[in-house]
Design a protein around this nucleic acid. Sequence first.
DNA 1: CGCTGGTATCAGCGAGTGATGATGTGACAT
DNA 2: ATGTCACATCATCACTCGCTGATACCAGCG
Lengths: 102, 102
Amino acid sequence: MLTSVEPDVIRVLGDPLRLQIVTLLARETLCTTHLVEETGAKQTNLSNHMKVLREAGIVETEPCGRFTYYKLKPEVLAGLSEQFAALAASARAAADNKRACP
Amino acid sequence: MLTSVEPDVIRVLGDPLRLQIVTLLARETLCTTHLVEETGAKQTNLSNHMKVLREAGIVETEPCGRFTYYKLKPEVLAGLSEQFAALAASARAAADNKRACP
DNA sequence: CGCTGGTATCAGCGAGTGATGATGTGACAT
DNA sequence: ATGTCACATCATCACTCGCTGATACCAGCG
């Protein structure tokens, strides 16, 4: 079976707010307070989304005093990129590979 | 501005069934009947998902008699791959770029 | 034309999920 | 110790969204 992209990670990244968080974290490591400022979302809402991102293995936490810093795990994004690239390549190769009408 | 990945496409691909459809279509161009056989889902359900994929610009339709063939648009997947690659690269570069505690 | 088969659309239901408020916990400062 | 601040958890509400059944549409074939 070719490229079995895991739906979990994609599903987690499908939320606009989470994608914004990931985009922000791709630029610098931030703690919840910063994310609240940047996104305008409530703290509890942010914390909820951060939990989802953490459980999906997309971010890592790094406590610093009473702050909690979040940073991305680039491998996950790189893996996604490769999987989509493989899908695209396969799609290009199979462009005219049409199964016969039944 | 860095890689503003559009949430729409990712969100559409977040569904397991749709991802399975995309994976199948990456191998060969199929019509709804084939997809019903492969996925085991009901026809109406499939048609619904195909509409979502079509409106998201991920697949193209190609009518052939009374059959409707679906084929992937590789550019979209390739674009996704590049965006995730850029995110991963940015995340790697900004690994130690930590904003100061407020 | 009427019939059959492939596909799309529509209405409705139920489960999953994002947003919010209240509350709990732990760390630092006074 | 007491208060405050940063963050997490819990319960709840509202809504979205995927699945299903019924139905309409369209192309070919008799």
